[in-house]
Each structure stands twice: as structure tokens, then as C-alpha cells.
Design a binder for these strands. Structure first.
Lengths: 142, 142
DNA sequence: CCCTTTTCTGGAACGAGTCAAGAAAATGAT
DNA sequence: ATCATTTTCTTGACTCGTTCCAGAAAAGGG
């Protein structure tokens, strides 16, 4: 869990200005993986009570564009963010409660990156989402 | 491309009442794969000019719940629907224009269905989205 | 053919996200 | 350090896809 100085360095390393909202947002994304925007907004406001939601949206967009965080948006969900980037990991999502866990690639480094027939597309990413039921919901349902 | 009678049979086969909006919606989804709700609404209205948008939303939900059509919703896109169901195919999406094409499984029948560490989840579906650039946009950009 | 159940209409409402203009803050140069 | 420039943040309105609701209409079984 990087501290504020490290987070600032991450920002500077991406040629981004270091502002308190950005540091707070980045910190929140590290603390709360797969959190939605409004959860992150609340988290940020425990530290900076007066940030606007717009500042959080802007920061999330900027950080995403810089590659410091990753945005994921499964079907039927609002946007969520995580700090693990660039390692080609995927997600398993519970259909019942919406909880998300990370899963590493099953098949080598870039599984399925070669589609059978790519229709002439140039493919640069294969996003895999596993849908299922989490342990908690399994117990609850049985 | 099934005709109205066949579509009606599909509905009855799923224990759904046969209504004109439903037949028209189902027909539109067959005609326009990966179309968004409002495109489907327009298509339906060429045949049934007075359908409400709510009827189309309801029909899409009902047909999706019955498994007659499939709903897909890539990040940053509105909901889209297709008539190919149950064959475990995936999609390749153009980052620039949003166009979608079907791709069959690259690796056998259920690629990646076995996650490396499933965190105790019971996985029932692996959804793969290939992101890239379509031929048209490739030409345009070069 | 009528009755019950389900579906459709019309319109209001919701929520995540975006837009826009001016105020504030962060960087780079003096 | 301070100032000027550039970028970012605040405030508040607004958009758009989607959902909610109550009453009207239509489908299918008896």
C-alpha cells in the first residue's frame, strides 16, 4: 500500500500534476479494489470532506487515461476501478451480490488473444469475465 | 432468418404469450445483431408505429430472461442484443467506432473456463471480449 | 365468449455520468 | 519567493438510458 509520497511520485511519473484530490482518489483506489465511483467518493471525503463529485470523476478519468488505474464495467454494473494494471489479470463476478475477485490468467500470458476468426480486426486486449456464484452466496442459497 | 410463425413458436416454446410487440422485437433482434435498444425500437416502429419504448424494454427483458436472446453490454456502451444464444461465442469490439463482430471460441469449447484460482466461486460462464480496431477504422487511421 | 392473468401505454422519475463557466491551485520562470 | 500561465476544481444544471407506476388493453384458458 503506497503512501502519499509514493502516490505523488506515480502521478509525477505520468506527467500529471499532484493535487490533493488526485492523491486521495489514487489512494482510495489502492485501498478499495473494485470500488464504484460513489464508494470512492465517500472514501475520498473522509479525508477531503469538500471534494466535488466532479473532481473525483475527473481524477478517475485522468488516472485511467494515464494507466495508473484501470476501469472495469461489467454488464449491469456501474464503473469500478482497481490499481492492478498491466498484468493482464481477469475477474470473477458473483451474479447474486456483485462481488468481484481477481483471477490470473489460466492459460499462459495472453490467453485467447488469438481469436479463431478475427474478422480483420487488430486485437490488442482480451478481457475475460468469469460469471458465477461467490462462496458466501453459495452458502446462503443452499 | 425465421418468419413470424417460427418466432411465435419460439415464444410459445418458452411459455411466453405471443404478442405483436414481442414478435416484432424478436424479429428485429434477428435482423440486426448487436443493435442497441433505440435502434431496435426504431426498427420495431417501422412495423408497429405505436409501440411504446417501455414495451420494447419489457420484451427485451422477457426474451432475455427466457434465453431467446442475449444481452451484451461492453464497457462504455449501451445494452445490445443478439439472437445467437447458447453457443458460447464471444465478441470483438472496435475501440474507435464501437462495431461488434462475433468470434467463436479459440481454444476448444470452453476456453478459460477454469480459472487459475477461482476464490471458491462456482463459475458458470466465461465471457470474453476482444478489444481492438476494425478493418474500416484501421484504414481510416493509417 | 367471458374471465383472469399478463402485457402494454403514457408519463413521470431516477441515477450515473457529462457539460460549462468561473474560481482556485499547481507548476515553471523571473 | 513571487508572479504568470496553465491546468484543475467547484457549482449546478443537464443529458440519456433505463426503470417505476397506475390504469387500459390484449392474450389464453375455461
Amino acid at each position: 500500500m503506497p503512501d502519499a509520497d509514493e502516490l505523488s511520485e506515480f502521478l509525477r511519473g505520468s506527467d500529471l500534476r499532484v493535487t490533493r484530490p488526485r492523491v486521495a482518489v489514487l489512494s482510495a483506489v489502492y485501498e478499495l479494489p473494485h470500488a464504484s465511483t460513489d464508494v470512492l467518493l465517500e472514501a475520498v471525503r473522509t479525508e477531503l470532506p469538500d471534494v466535488s463529485h466532479q473532481a473525483v470523476y475527473d481524477s478517475l478519468h485522468t488516472l485511467t487515461a494515464a494507466g495508473l488505474i484501470r476501469r472495469i464495467q461489467p454488464s449491469g454494473s456501474v464503473a469500478r476501478y482497481e490499481s492492478r494494471t498491466g498484468d493482464n489479470h481477469h475477474h470473477v463476478i458473483c451474479r447474486h451480490c456483485g462481488s468481484i475477485a481477481d483471477v490470473d490468467c489460466a492459460v499462459g500470458e495472453t490467453p485467447c488473444l488469438t481469436a479463431m476468426d478475427d474478422h480483420g480486426f487488430t486485437i490488442d486486449e482480451a478481457e475475460v469475465i468469469y460469471w458465477g456464484t461467490c462462496p458466501t452466496c453459495s452458502n446462503h442459497l443452499s
